[in-house]
């Protein structure tokens, strides 16, 4: 990607990397961190972060080390310690902007919701509807790994984390009665029928 993410000024402010003792200031600090995480993830299309804030899954193709780190700034030689990182991520979870990938295994990382699950499901549903594929059986693979013959998967859905896609389908479309998942022979979710 030609342009890299531009952090706000506060990202170059040394005290920003240390947990502030004053509760009011701390709240503001967490709020600012949340906004940075969300805009950062949206910019690089990152849908999940490891528990240490390293991008786990993104739909763009850059290598992780090509991205500027979120929780550190080399220019001012500051970085958040892991305790503070966890506090920030916890704040995102409290604000419903993030969720553990697996509630029982927090070490697996978190999903970042710079777009809500409903927003994602709308994108998916619109795509299926517009392309006349309602009622057809679609494999998860063809929804995320389109080749050129397959066509017009919206850019936003291309190369989406399959786990994440399944979560979107499961938690929104299935609950709305608009979708049914299909299990393949490996007992994994492999397809979906959206009506």
């Amino acid at each position: 990607m030609s342009k890299s993410f531009e952090f706000p000024k506060i990202h170059s402010f040394p005290p920003f990397y240390t947990k502030q003792p004053n509760q009011t200031i701390l709240n503001q600090q967490l709020e600012s961190w949340m906004n940075i995480v969300l805009t950062y993830c949206e910019f690089y299309k990152i849908t999940s972060l490891s528990i240490d804030g390293i991008p786990k899954f993104k739909s763009t193709t850059e290598e992780n080390n090509a991205l500027p780190p979120i929780f550190s700034n080399d220019e001012i030689k500051r970085n958040c310690n892991s305790e503070f990182k966890h506090l920030i991520l916890q704040h995102l979870i409290h604000q419903h902007k993030a969720e553990f990938i697996n509630q029982k295994k927090p070490e697996l990382g978190i999903y970042i919701y710079w777009r809500s699950l409903v927003g994602w499901s709308d994108l998916l549903y619109q795509y299926v509807d517009k392309t006349g594929q309602r009622g057809a059986i679609l494999t998860i693979y063809e929804l995320t790994q389109p080749d050129d013959s397959e066509g017009y998967i919206p850019q936003e859905l291309k190369n989406l984390d399959t786990e994440f896609l399944i979560k979107i389908i499961k938690e929104v479309l299935v609950k709305q009665g608009k979708a049914q998942l299909l299990i393949n022979e490996d007992n994994e979710i492999g397809g979906v029928k959206i009506v």
């Binding site: 057809a136 059986i137 679609l138 494999t139 063809e142 790994q145 299909l182 492999g190 397809g191």
Partner: peptide
């Protein structure tokens, strides 16, 4: 189910 199977093969 049949279509699903075929599509999986295709994938």
């Amino acid at each position: 189910k049949a279509i699903f199977q075929l599509k999986q093969q295709r994938d």
